[in-house]
Amino acid sequence: MSARDVSHSPVLTAIRQKFGSAVVEMHAFRGDETVVILPTKLHELMRFLRDDPRMQFNFLMDITAVDWPERHPRFDVVYHLYSLKYNRRLRVKTRVDDGDTVDSVTDLWRGANWLEREVYDMFGIRFRHHPDLRRILMYDEFEGHPLRKDYPLRQEQPRVPYRIAPRDPWRDPDIWNR
């Protein structure tokens, strides 16, 4: 079974039939069925996947994003779904740019509330119609979105005044005289 050959998968064929033109790409790399869809049709696809009796993806396992800074559009928002009845998984991806918004799926699955807040916090992707979009893991005064590739790993934004100067043990041999 090659990664691009999706004709044997009932889910992917049904999605292709219903959403033909909006589907950007489909593959099944290492057995994970994946569909990439346009952001305008995302909510419709999600509703179809949750409610249609052949699909019944009642679990939203995860929402996350991947940053490809050299590509336009920059972000991949990734949804992982699971169907309890048919025991199968699906990954739905959509591509958005910096500053674009994505439709929120909070009205379909309540777990999406916190998951989308985390994507907003870490990447800066806003979700339309989200009831309460604010930071969840970082503090409110934090500037920037840490998981973007252009945010440096070690750039700290302290909130409490330091009582001694921080020393970097790898570059400062005199750390013992702290």
């Binding site: 396992m61 995860d62 996350t64 777990g111 916190w114 985390e118």
Partner: peptide
């Protein structure tokens, strides 16, 4: 769940942990 995106290098490009407690706490 672990979601790993690789670009063929010796380190992961993106690694995401789907922690079960996140849903439970929400």
């Amino acid at each position: 769940g672990f979601y790993i995106v690789s670009t063929g290098e010796d380190h992961p490009y993106r690694i995401r942990v789907r922690g079960p407690c996140f849903a439970l706490t929400s």
